[in-house]
Design a protein around this nucleic acid. Structure first.
Lengths: 115, 115
DNA sequence: CTTGAACCTGACGTCAGCGGTAGGTTTTAG
DNA sequence: CTAAAACCTACCGCTGACGTCAGGTTCAAG
């Protein structure tokens, strides 16, 4: 599969895919003409990357997590990182939930003043 | 209250406070020597700003919301914006919750492989 | 009255995750 | 065989929320 198809199927830009490679997240093979050749699983992996990016993880963090995704062994360090990132996401959710409540207050107050 | 104290009490940098002013979020008075003089409520307002920034709102969005915070009337436009931002935060929470589940999967898998 | 902390105004630097462009090569369709 | 679509590398640009000087002013303490 070439880069354009991966882009279409995963919903990210070609540029983004090359960027991911630059960051060490993807290392596709190269065809005889030098073009990138992606394995089937690439599309799913890109989707995972997008999800982790959306969760606020940096490229380097995601790179560190890759062995947890596709190897058979995990080191203590990797497990600790997973736990740490989980905690971060958890905190973020809690914080956003608080913000949501704050916005609800503002909305309620605004509605009252309209009446 | 001068800028340094506001910074300490609100937990942001002096630079950030000047930036907020640049963005129209804060408009402190000026003392005779040209120094910024903040009212008591400034600290709380800065905390609200931080919360909204953390929720992914931009400076200009926050600036638009300010009238909802401290005036007595709100326009339909402002109420619509509040609702839209609320929806955005809600979506973000849902997405993060999905990511959390994903991380939990990874963690469980990692733990199994360790055993 | 001096000195050092805190303040002021520019203005440039940073970082991340790409977007966009230039200039050239490879692949595919007809 | 040709033309266009898709690909390549290399590089500069962008945005947002500040960090970080530089060079000068003001304030509080002794």
């Amino acid at each position: 599969m070439r880069i354009g198809e991966v882009a279409r199927r995963s919903g990210v830009s070609v540029r983004a895919l090359r960027y991911y490679e630059e960051q060490g997240l993807l290392t596709p093979d190269r065809g005889p003409g030098g073009q990138r050749e992606y394995a089937e699983g690439a599309v799913d992996r890109v989707r995972v990357f997008q999800q982790l990016y959306a969760a606020g993880l940096s490229s380097s963090r995601i790179a560190e997590l890759i062995p947890c995704i596709d190897t058979d062994t995990t080191t203590a360090h990797q497990r600790a990182m997973l736990a740490a990132e989980r905690a971060r996401v958890r905190e973020r959710i809690d914080q956003l939930t608080a913000t949501l409540a704050r916005l609800d207050d503002l909305i309620e107050a605004a509605d009252n003043r309209r009446a």
